[in-house]
């Protein structure tokens, strides 16, 4: 697909798959084209979902686009609800279940990031993550405590609620 700009930048050097070609629609001009991204799997987190995989997604993000590009889409949602609650929602982007492979209810599933209108970012946790990520030993401790340690999401939420 074509992208405006970019010509003359180091993307030309660093990304051989980004090509600069004669612009077929502007005589004497060149344009950059880039290959489409086709992820094997996308993980998206929705405000609401129904059991058919219909999602209500954050309107400031591009999750609906990401899901449509991906071969497998695993959606988590704050709540699984009857379909009409999604249809009547005043804000958000609706994505039809035909694009979704699996859906699972995971309250506070965006932690430590935010779901707008429901909960804010967990700044304390993000700071702890940044500190832990500085070297391999502390990062391993982080992974053991928050990723590999908890057997289920409620154990994760319990672990992150303690200082």
């Amino acid at each position: 697909m074509p992208v405006p700009g970019h010509v003359g930048s180091d993307y030309e050097r660093l990304r051989p798959d980004f090509r600069v070609i004669p612009d077929p629609y502007a005589a004497g001009k060149r344009v950059m084209v880039v290959p489409a991204i086709r992820p094997d799997v996308a993980l998206v987190h929705a405000h609401l979902a129904d059991t058919a995989g219909t999602l209500l997604l954050e309107e400031r993000e591009d999750d609906a686009l990401l899901a449509q590009a991906s071969r497998v889409v695993i959606a988590s949602a704050e709540r699984i609800v009857p379909t009409d609650l999604i249809r009547r929602a005043p804000t958000g982007i609706t994505l039809e279940g035909l694009h979704v492979t699996a859906v699972v209810e995971v309250p506070r599933g965006a932690h430590p990031t935010a779901v707008r209108g429901l909960y804010d970012i967990d700044e304390r946790h993000l700071r702890a993550y940044m500190a832990a990520a500085r070297d391999d030993a502390t990062f391993k401790t982080y992974l053991d405590r928050y990723v590999f340690g908890p057997r289920a999401h409620d154990e994760y939420l319990d672990a992150v609620s303690r200082p």
Partner: peptide, 10 residues
Amino acid sequence: SPGSSPPDVV
């Protein structure tokens, strides 16, 4: 992002 670019680019 380059400050300037070749003339054959929009």
